[in-house]
């Protein structure tokens, strides 16, 4: 069986990806062309044909890899990039034990990190993408990796995954941005990938000190609320995929994070309001 293969290192995580088709591999190789190539991968990801026929007729991708979900739905070949990205994220979510993993986005300025977390639709990914093109360094929009020894945040700046309205907004503001193919009607809506700005890739191995934690909510009058430490703790245990597995190290890392990093909830209706709130809180607290 002919197999097409690609290797890439995103932050500290090294992947090898094989595919029954050439196209997704070519797309990955193009979008990730400035990223380092690892020798020994941490995780293997496989884009396999659902059946021998479905390699050629209405090609359908089954996600595979070192870690798999039993009931992952197959995707059409046209959504191959999304398939690869989902499978790569899954390896990290289920496998990574070298940091405390937070499902969050992050940007950096002056060696300090702004971390944003919240439910899907809160806008944390779009905010990070936007700030990443407005003077901040983009560190990631899926996972933030907190060091178990020194509490520093390591970047995981994979492709930025823009959804629905965010696609148009970023195409208008990131004029020099490099975009992947537009994928319409995926299980997550319309998706288009954006390559992180040059500084994000150049400093892919550079950690930052967590300085501010925000819980954004999109669609409400601008507001800022304080959040108690115990609520932050509860929310972050839910936002972490490996907190329980890390045991005592996870608890120590998370409690130190909460004691040292100020946290606020912010409401906003558009990017301009959000940027104003972020800058104001950053000047006050970080």
């Amino acid at each position: 069986m002919s197999v097409h293969e690609f290797r890439v290192k995103v932050g500290p995580v090294a992947f090898r990806i094989c595919s029954a088709w050439k196209r997704p591999i070519d797309q990955l190789a193009d979008l990730y062309r400035d990223y380092p190539t690892p020798e020994i991968p941490d995780y293997s990801v496989r884009l396999e044909a659902r059946s021998p026929f479905r390699r050629f007729i209405r090609p359908s991708i089954t996600l595979g890899g070192d870690y798999m979900l039993p009931d992952a739905a197959p995707l059409p070949l046209a959504q191959g990039l999304l398939a690869a990205e989902m499978a790569m994220n899954l390896q990290v979510a289920l496998g990574w034990r070298r940091h405390l993993l937070l499902h969050a986005s992050a940007v950096e300025k002056d060696g300090k990190a702004l971390i944003m977390t919240g439910a899907s639709g809160s806008g944390k990914s779009t905010l990070a993408a936007m700030l990443g093109h407005k003077g901040w360094r983009f560190m990631g929009d899926e996972f933030v990796l907190i060091d178990l020894v020194n509490g520093e945040a390591a970047p995981f700046p994979r492709m930025i995954s823009l959804k629905n309205e965010a696609i148009g907004a970023m195409q208008a503001s990131a004029l020099d941005g490099r975009f992947g193919p537009l994928m319409i009607g995926t299980p997550k809506g319309d998706i288009r990938h954006l390559v992180p700005a040059r500084d994000a890739i150049a400093q892919i191995a550079v950690s930052a000190t967590p300085a501010l934690l925000l819980f954004p909510s999109f669609g409400y009058e601008p507001a800022v609320r304080e959040i108690g430490a115990s609520e932050v703790f509860m929310r972050l245990t839910q936002a972490s995929t490996n907190y329980v597995a890390l045991g005592e190290a996870g608890f120590t890392t998370l409690t130190r994070f909460i004691k040292t990093v100020p946290a606020r909830a912010i409401d906003y209706r558009d990017g301009i309001e959000a940027a104003a709130l972020v800058n104001q809180l950053w000047d006050e607290l970080a």
Binding site: I40, D42, W96, R97, R98, L246, G247
Partner: peptide, 15 residues
């Protein structure tokens, strides 16, 4: 690179 992966496996086995 392998040692880091195996360390991860040790953490997980302990869990």
């Amino acid at each position: 690179a392998v040692e880091r992966i195996l360390d991860e496996a040790r953490v997980n086995a302990e869990y």
